[in-house]
Write a protein that binds this DNA or RNA. Structure first.
Lengths: 109, 109
DNA sequence: GAGACTGTTGGATGATTGTCAAACGGTACG
DNA sequence: CGTACCGTTTGACAATCATCCAACAGTCTC
C-alpha cells in the first residue's frame, strides 16, 4: 500500500528564521558546499555521492541536513524512504533580502 | 616621548579573505552585535562598555577582536595603549559584493 | 514475509570554542 | 621612577560540534 505520503519535516516559520542560526548553519565547509548544490534549484535526496560529500558517513549527512533545516535554510519532504531537500529560496529572500544572492555570488567556484 | 606609532595589526589581504572564515566569525551573537556597532563607520577602542558588551571580560573581548580581524572583517590600528578597530567595508564589498549590505539589513534592530 | 534500501537515533570520541582569571607587556602620566 | 591604564597571552574549564559506528525504523521489492 502506502501511496507516497508526502510529509514535510518540521521547520521554522519564515518569521522565526534567525540570522545567527543561518550563519551558524553556513559556518561549516560541508554545509556551505551543500548550499551551492541546492542553489541549482533541484531537489536532492540525501545520498552523499550526489551531494559531493561521498567521504562522509550517512549519519553525518543526516546531521548536517537537520542543522540546515532547523536553521530555516532548507525544507525536506519525506517520500517513501527518501528525503527530498531543497533550498527555501523565497522564504530566505523574504526574510533577508539579497542575502542569499550575495552569498551564492561569493561562493568559490 | 613615544609619538603615537600608528601600527596596523596583521590582517589577511583582500584576496585572501575566505567566505567560510567570515561566516564563522559572524556565527556568534557577540560578534554579530559587534558588526552592527562597527557598521556605524566609527572607530572604536576595545572598551567593553562602549561596544555594548559590558558583561564580558576584557580578555574575551580581545579574543573576539582577534577572530574578526583574522577573518578579514575588521582592521586594527595600535595607537599608544589603545587599539582602534573599524570595519573593512571597502575590502569586503570588493571581495563579496553586496554581502555586507544585506547582512546589515538583516540584523535585528 | 525476507531482504535490501534510505535515512534517523544514540553513544562515543577528539577537536574546537566561548568564557574567565591571572599574569604579563607597553604606554601614559604623575 | 612608580603607578595606573589598555590590551594580549596563557591556562583552565565547560559546552558545543563534526564525525564515525552500530542499532533501529520505515519502505520498497521480490
Amino acid at each position: 500500500m502506502s501511496e507516497a505520503e508526502n510529509e514535510w519535516l518540521p521547520q521554522p516559520d519564515v518569521e522565526d528564521i534567525e540570522l545567527v542560526k543561518v550563519l551558524q548553519a553556513l559556518a561549516d565547509p560541508v554545509r556551505l558546499s551543500l548550499l551551492k548544490v541546492y542553489a541549482t534549484g533541484e531537489r536532492f535526496s540525501c545520498a552523499p555521492d550526489a551531494l559531493g560529500i561521498a567521504h562522509l558517513h550517512k549519519s553525518t549527512v543526516s546531521h548536517h541536513m537537520k542543522i540546515m533545516r532547523e536553521a530555516g535554510l532548507t525544507s525536506t519532504r519525506a517520500v517513501g524512504r527518501n528525503r527530498y531537500v531543497q533550498l527555501r529560496r523565497d522564504d530566505l529572500d523574504a526574510r533577508f533580502p539579497g542575502l542569499l544572492d550575495s552569498l551564492l555570488k561569493s561562493l568559490p567556484d
